[in-house]
Design a protein around this nucleic acid. Structure first.
Lengths: 75, 75
DNA sequence: TTTCAATGTAAAACTTATTTTACATTTATA
DNA sequence: TATAAATGTAAAATAAGTTTTACATTGAAA
């Protein structure tokens, strides 16, 4: 089971707005499973979805996601 | 031939830094073709690559990419 | 004007993101 | 505590991003 390299604060921000995963999925036009997978960092969202999520959650992509660790990965 | 929904200023910023597409591809660990395709907006980069590009080009994801138009797309 | 570097492009294979369908578990509330 | 809502998860299919290989065109410099 792969794990995303990028962390995010979607769950926190979603809850502050009292939205369910289903609500957020509708607001961003993806499935609830996609929201769930991204919150639980099964994989990274596309750039397009990252922008939609940031917009709906009243923030920026750079704020919502943080690329940390992995600076010495692969090669 | 599909076209990316997201615009970017990679080419401009790359040139200001006097980098070739090949240079940028090495700095971000992708192929030159990937850089070329993204500059010419054949498709969007992954979120991970978007962050790498922003970092190398001394800017942020939100600055480097702009999601415009398409507000009334698809459904 | 030749030559080399840089850029554009394309098909096939592969990897990763997303959907669809479906069900199980947890959490809130009547 | 029963019921509904929310969340977690999973397999198969499809869509989108990336690599590999390869070649053609453009641009710069000798």
């Amino acid at each position: 089971m792969e794990v995303s390299t990028i962390k995010n604060t979607i769950k926190d921000r979603r809850k502050k707005l009292k939205l369910s995963q289903a609500d957020l999925s509708e607001l961003t036009s993806v499935t609830r499973q996609t929201i769930n997978a991204i919150e639980n960092e099964k994989y990274d969202p596309s750039l397009s979805l990252a922008f939609k999520l940031a917009r709906v959650l009243n923030t920026t992509v750079d704020n919502l996601f943080t690329e940390e660790g992995d600076y010495y990965g692969k090669d």
